[in-house]
Design a protein around this nucleic acid. Sequence first.
RNA 1: CGGGGCGUGGCGCAGCCUGGUAGCGCGCCUGCUUUGGGAGCAGGAAGCCGGAGGUUCAAAUCCUCUCGCCCCGACCA
Length: 506
Amino acid sequence: MTKKVQTAISPTRQEDYPEWYQQVVRASDLAERSPVRGCMVIKPWGYTLWENISRSLDDKFKATGVKNAYFPLFIPLNFLEREAEHVEGFAKECAVVTHHRLEKGPDGGLIPAGLLTEPLIVRPTSETIIGESFSKWISSYRDLPLLINQWANVVRWEMRTRIFLRTSEFLWQEGHTAHASAKEAQERTLLMLDVYADLAENHLAMPVLKGKKSPAERFPGAVDTFTIEAMMQDRKALQAGTSHFLGQNFARASQIRFQNQDSQEEYAWTTSWGSSTRLIGGLIMTHGDDDGIVLPPMVAPAHIVLLPIFKNEAEKPMVMDYVESLARELRDQPYGGRSIGVEIDDRDTGGARGWDWIRKGIPIRVEIGPRDISKNAVFFARRDRGHREKTSMERSRFVSEIPGLLSEIQESLFEKARMFREVHTREIDDKKSFYDFFTPGGDSEFEIHGGFARSHWCGSDDCEGRIKDELGVTIRCIPLEEPPEAGRCIGCGDPSDRRVVFAKAY
RNA sequence: CGGGGCGUGGCGCAGCCUGGUAGCGCGCCUGCUUUGGGAGCAGGAAGCCGGAGGUUCAAAUCCUCUCGCCCCGACCA
């Protein structure tokens, strides 16, 4: 008699993907919703993950000469007004501070008082306020390039929020640079895109496509926006990081000028680039399964959990000694630029204990009982394999092989995700196939279908817009590093010289 | 903001149509028994049913308003 495989998360991805996502976030103990509309509480397991991600990124930024700084949370209204497209892009989702005091109201409650002469907006992004500083810091070509990053929270009053993927407040970094030439700024834009791709692929084990955004998808005020796009397990695309070449638009708006070597005054060329806690959402949807999240070792808050097993109190000291000394040895092992993170969970909660760690996605679970100790061995399971698949290994060998084992897991996660993307990416050249690809065929409400369609596009906003209206599918990016190819636009049939990637998106 | 759905102990839900002040599973606490695996038995804590009004002798159940959440759409990292 076969019974349905029991999963730790219900519903499964297949049954109801959006609900699965919510449940996984909860079950993995990463974060929870807060009483504040659209905002989340990031719990220690999730925050440590974010710390690991942000530390890796920070190191990479610094390796390219970027320095960190910090700018105000509040931006005067008139700053935002300086760049026309920028205003238009963000005006609809700004939190605005209008008062600076609270007074007792007639009903005893507090009411805002002390109207500000000029409202302040809570930063949705900081181009304008940082531009203001840049304009003061830069006067000569000798001051360039200026390479600044800030780690901050920002607020975008979104209509619809999803934990980690789109929250009203989120944590991110925003890099802002100023250069003496367009070429240098463009190179910086692409360099930072490479940094994001490196982080995504080598730390998050999340394969990404690097590409340029179509004009319709560009950052408000940018000349060019570049993106890394990942495919989630519902086959939708997730924009996981963006890098913008801002030309002289913001320099003009913020009066960022410098004197060049010919004593001529010029506007600087600027860039900005950002990535956020959304990466965690991407991580969940790239590797998570029906038992919870699966953490790539490079960013996992901890790598190994040791689960002591003893039949009675008499055995406990011996087991705990073994466990604690093993933990010490493991923590001495290096992995991914830090030491191995080891948790010891000696709660006496039976088998449920192991499932907590499965849901939390820890890469390796190790069970240690008297039987292992007598053999001087450990009994372990990998999160990227079935939960019943466990291996016994001699202790010292386990300790010395652990860095390699973690690398293997990291690699296997990436490879699995890459294969998934490959299987669900199609070159599509006729309109009917294209529409079929993005049209649900089954009767399930949450059917997962489609994927990435690599198709030709004539370059017109009209074609792009029509496909968006009719199918909810957008151009995710125009991939970089791909040779031109002659073809016909999937929308209108006009000649096209390259393929672009179409997909439904988060 | 438009369409749809939903708000009942920490989580998932039943009850609502046919009003009579709350129930199930998991989790949690205590004890005993178990122990290489999401344990068994017994006992227990925890909700006044999102909020506010109204109808009624009586409302989780009916009516109105409101807040929030989820899905689709529009918009976005």
